[in-house]
Amino acid sequence: MRLIFLGPPGAGKGTQAKRLVEKYNIPQLSTGDMLRAAVAAGTPVGLKAKAVMEAGQLVSDDIVVGIIVDRIEEPDARNGFILDGFPRTVAQAEALDAALAAKGQKVDLALELVVDHDKLVDRIINRAAEAQARGEEVRKDDDPEVFKTRLAAYARDTAVVAPYYKERGLLVQIDGQQPIDKVSADIEKALSPLLTNV
């Protein structure tokens, strides 16, 4: 089960991915974490990424896809994986498809959590206020101004990825504003056709 999680920041992708990781015993792959791990491990692709990052540049799609391809070779990803935060552009989606096809694999489903952007900003403001009330430090990502910038970047760049998967019949949109358990139930319903083929 090779899944892609799409949706704006704060939509609940992390919460839902965690539930799927526990239920299906497949890893959730964050490109940021994989990049750091590859650099730390000194893999060939990690060394390339390190050189680019040290030069203060963005890591190219080829390098990121290379890191993903290396990572999905590991035993824990044999039954599938959840990609969260990638692909961010159509070029990345195409590169991922090509890399998977070379291994005789493909993306099985792209799940998009759809949430009203104004409600998302309210959700983040509440989350920040609750953290402060508990005496906790507010996550940098939960600063409303930082969050609005991330949301605008998502709308500009990543929102174009959903139509790419829709054209291929792989996109399932789920109302991310429902209670968490209802979102999980809708995700399970979307996954059920895949499970009958396992």
Rank of each mutant, 00 (worst) to 15 (best):
D62L: 03
A153I: 14
G135C: 12
V107M: 02
G66L: 03
K140E: 08
L113H: 10
A129G: 08
I68K: 02
V59I: 07
G176Y: 06
E73A: 00
D118S: 09
T89E: 08
A99C: 05
R71H: 03
A55T: 03
E145W: 11
G169M: 03
A133L: 12
Q132A: 15
I72C: 08
G56Y: 00
G104H: 07
D84A: 11
P144I: 00
E54K: 14
Y164W: 04
E167H: 14
G66D: 02
T149V: 10
K140M: 06
A133S: 09
D62P: 12
D76L: 01
R88L: 10
P75H: 06
D108N: 13
K106V: 00
L96A: 14
D143Y: 01
Q132Y: 06
E137Q: 15
I82D: 04
A131D: 02
I124N: 07
V161T: 04
V115P: 12
F81K: 08
G169I: 03
I125A: 14
E73F: 01
A110T: 09
I68A: 04
V69P: 11
F81A: 04
Q178E: 03
A110W: 04
I125P: 11
A159G: 07
V65Y: 07
D76T: 00
P144D: 07
E136L: 12
I174L: 02
A95E: 00
G135Q: 12
R123S: 15
L170W: 03
D175E: 15
A99E: 05
K148D: 11
A133M: 06
D116L: 13
L83F: 08
Q173M: 15
A110G: 01
R134T: 11
D122L: 14
I174H: 03
E112S: 15
A153T: 07
V90M: 01
K166V: 11
Q132R: 10
G176E: 08
K148G: 00
D141K: 08
V121E: 10
E74N: 02
D142K: 08
D141W: 10
G85F: 05
E112I: 07
D97W: 09
E54G: 04
K148T: 13
Q173G: 03
K103A: 09
I68C: 11
D122F: 08
V59C: 13
L109Y: 05
D97V: 11
